[in-house]
Structures are given as structure tokens and as C-alpha cells.
């Protein structure tokens, strides 16, 4: 479960930059909540606050039952965070990477062994388990990243534009994995600016623009007659020139 309550983030400067303002939404277990927005709309800042990498300057968030400001370490332990910016250690093997993150999550060596074995089988990673990450293909790297985010079996998954720059097949496998997470009862937040992806995947979406959540609901509820989600998005953010 994720609850964002009037989340705000202002970066100091002259003048200060208000990246996110009063963003409020809820994502329940077994639900995929899409956060839609153009580049610079405030998606990544919002997700980084939920993952406790950034501290909000206003509002709060409950992540997996923990206050993200008062208990950031516990909140972060409930999250699996995956984005195109979360790269892998090139000089570690796939197996070492997954086990390393298991240790960082405080898991025992026995549990790490059991869970990584299950993940390697499920994600078909056995063939490249002992290969260094810099020798892996893009698709193989994505599978390692997925295993890395799942090793601690988090109840909350946050995906920040995970398919950006990926080929069709790799992107499809990521989407399948996101659906699996929903099926496993995890609360999933999925940020994207690819509208057809959100339309296919998300149970509910929130449109973020200029740091504000402008609209929220099921994709079919946001669309008007004859519109697809992209048209609805453009209308909500204020037309073609609405990019922030």
C-alpha cells in the first residue's frame, strides 16, 4: 500500500524550484497505478520521494505501512525500485549483484541462496548467472535488475520509465513482469510518458504536470468520446504546448 499525502518538493535556488506540489494519491495492493507525465513533469521526483531517496519538503507518504520521513530505512526496505537510471555494477556477475542486494536488505545467506535460486530459474538467468554484468545483453541486464529488485520480496514496486530505450521484446518482458507483480498482490506504481503502455497496463492513472497531479482515475474514465489516453493526456495538461 502506498499513500502520498500532499507530497511536495522544492529545490533551493534563486528562485527556488517547486518540482512537486501537493501530490496526493493511493495505490492499493494488487493494483498498478500509472503516473503519466512529460519529461520534467515531476514523476521521478515523486517516485524518489516515495522510495525515500529524496526527503519531501511538504506532505508525507506511507509506504508499506511506514512513514517515509520518520522511518525512511523501513519504508525503503518495503520497496523494489527499478528505473532506467538504476544501472548494474559492471564488474560484478549477475549472481553476485543479486546476492549483494540481498545482503544490503539484511537477508540471511540461506534465504539469499533460496530466493536467488528461485529468481534465477523463474527469470531464466542460469545461463548467465556467473557472467559479469558488462558482458550481458540489454535484455539480460533487465532480468538481473528485476531479480535485484525482487530479492527481498517487497510489497511495493516502483517502476520509473523502465522501458525507455529498450527494444520491443525486452519492453514486453518488463510489462509482463509488472503484471506478475500485480498478480502477486504487490502495490505497483508505474511511471511513463508512453500512453499506450499505460493504457494496456494500469488499473488507475494520475496525470502529473508542472509538479501537480491534474487528474486521476481509470484510463477509461479520463478518456472522452473518441479520445485515446494520449488525446486525454494532452487535453488535461492544456494542449500541445502544455509540456513543462
Amino acid at each position: 500500500m502506498i499513500e502520498a499525502r500532499a507530497l511536495s518538493k522544492t529545490y533551493p535556488g534563486k528562485p527556488p524550484v517547486q518540482a512537486v506540489q501537493d501530490v496526493t494519491f493511493t495505490c492499493r495492493p494488487g493494483e498498478i497505478y500509472g503516473l503519466l507525465g512529460a519529461n520534467g513533469a515531476g514523476k521521478t521526483t515523486t517516485l524518489r520521494m516515495l522510495a525515500t531517496m529524496l526527503r519531501p519538503t511538504g506532505g508525507s507518504a506511507m509506504v508499506g505501512g511506514h512513514d517515509s520521513v520518520a522511518e525512511p530505512d523501513q519504508a525503503r526496505a518495503c520497496v523494489g525500485f527499478l528505473s532506467t537510471a538504476t544501472a548494474l555494477y559492471s564488474r560484478l556477475t549477475a549472481g553476485e549483484t543479486v546476492r549483494y542486494f540481498g545482503r544490503l536488505h539484511g537477508l540471511s545467506e540461506k534465504i539469499i541462496r533460496e530466493r536467488s535460486a528461485r529468481l534465477f530459474d523463474r527469470l531464466e538467468m542460469r545461463a548467465f548467472e556467473d557472467r559479469r554484468c558488462d558482458k550481458l545483453s540489454t535484455g539480460q541486464k533487465q532480468r538481473v535488475s528485476i531479480a535485484r529488485t525482487l530479492i527481498h520480496d517487497p510489497p511495493v514496486m516502483i517502476f520509473d520509465e523502465p522501458t525507455t530505450g529498450l527494444d520491443v521484446m525486452t519492453a514486453r518482458s518488463i510489462l509482463a513482469f509488472v503484471r506478475e507483480c500485480r498478480g502477486a498482490g504487490k502495490a505497483v506504481i508505474y511511471s511513463t510518458h508512453i500512453m499506450h503502455e499505460a493504457e494496456k497496463l494500469c488499473d488507475r492513472v494520475g496525470v502529473i504536470h508542472g509538479g501537480r497531479l491534474l487528474a486521476e482515475g481509470k484510463p477509461e474514465d479520463l478518456r472522452r468520446e473518441g479520445e485515446d489516453l494520449e488525446d486525454a493526456f494532452v487535453r488535461i495538461v492544456g494542449g500541445e504546448g502544455g509540456e513543462s
Binding site: D73, Q74, T86, H105
Partner: peptide
């Protein structure tokens, strides 16, 4: 530069 800092910061280690 390599983008691994964000990966590390997403773990619960302080």
C-alpha cells in the same frame, strides 16, 4: 556516472 549510485540508494542501507 554509471548510474549505480541510484541503485545503491534504493536499498535500505543508510
Amino acid at each position: 556516472e554509471r548510474g549505480t549510485m541510484e541503485t545503491l540508494l534504493s536499498s535500505p542501507v543508510s
